[in-house]
Nucleic acid binder design. Structure first.
Length: 248
DNA sequence: CGCATGGCCCTTA
DNA sequence: TTAAGGGCCATGC
């Protein structure tokens, strides 16, 4: 008696004609326009699994995932608007096969709003591994879905943009297109300012936080470290969360 | 204040 | 199994 749903399911799978079977296992792929040029994007029933720029998409996909690929008639719902607007929060992603650490890192990176940046160390703190800063870099370097997980919004603590899977130049272009004032970030960094505080709200932010951008110049105070801002009586912004020791 | 240098931790070969 | 190395960071001249 094969009443076991798993067994009957397997039997059904085995009975499927090869074409339908391939259909189920294979990922689909399409070419789509993006801010940095044309992309090849692979996706499954679970969501987008892989984003690739330049040549060699199929080889790279096979090497990394070892799954068959079939062309798709159209991109998955929501992909084009997500690429166009840089708002990717709702788009389903297929991150199966990644380690827990890497998934956590990608999820954290995904919460950075368009037009803002956060340091690698911020991601590390958010995933509960404050000292795994380099590992965060490694994980983002292997981000299978750049742009959709906006790893270009993760920058170095010293104000430099840092490296990127599509190259540092592309990272800069993307950030500028999203409205990040990189010149200002660098100018502040030159003065060793990495945090901005408002003496009307008593709050200290990362410089690109949308709250920080609205601080009236006379009320604005720059700080080199969070400790110094705190010593001056400021508390970390609850939006950009420059400190992770506050309850989540 | 710019640069070098350990340190740290996860992944891969 | 292990060792090497990476999209970094804080320190110490």
């Amino acid at each position: 008696m094969t009443q076991d749903p798993l067994l009957t399911g397997l039997a059904a799978l085995a009975a499927e004609p090869p074409e339908a079977l391939l259909d189920r296992i294979a990922a689909r792929w399409v070419r789509v326009p993006a801010p940095i040029g044309e992309l090849a994007v692979a996706f499954t029933d679970h969501g987008v699994a892989y984003v690739h720029a330049g040549e060699g998409f199929a080889e790279a996909y096979r090497k990394r995932f070892g799954r068959p690929l079939l062309p798709a008639a159209r991109p998955p719902a929501g992909l084009l608007p997500a690429l166009r607007t840089g708002r990717t929060a709702g788009l389903p992603l297929d991150l199966r096969g990644m380690s827990d650490f890497q998934r956590d890192v990608l999820e954290a990176a995904r919460t950075i709003p368009r037009g803002e940046v956060r340091p690698y160390s911020w991601i590390a703190a958010r995933v509960g591994r404050p000292r795994a800063v380099r590992a965060v870099g490694t994980a983002l370097g292997r981000n299978p879905v750049p742009l959709l997980v906006p790893c270009h919004r993760v920058t170095r603590s010293d104000g430099a943009v840092g490296d990127y899977v599509f190259g540092a130049a592309a990272k800069e272009r993307l950030l500028l297109a999203e409205g990040v004032d990189l010149d200002r970030v660098r100018a502040l960094a030159d003065e060793r300012v990495f945090y901005l505080a408002s003496d009307t709200t008593g709050v200290v932010c990362f410089p690109t936080c949308h709250n920080a951008r609205r601080i009236t110049p006379v009320h604005r105070h720059g700080f080199r470290s969070l400790a110094q801002a705190r010593a001056a009586g400021y508390r970390p912004c609850r939006t950009c969360r420059p400190a992770q020791d506050v309850a989540v």
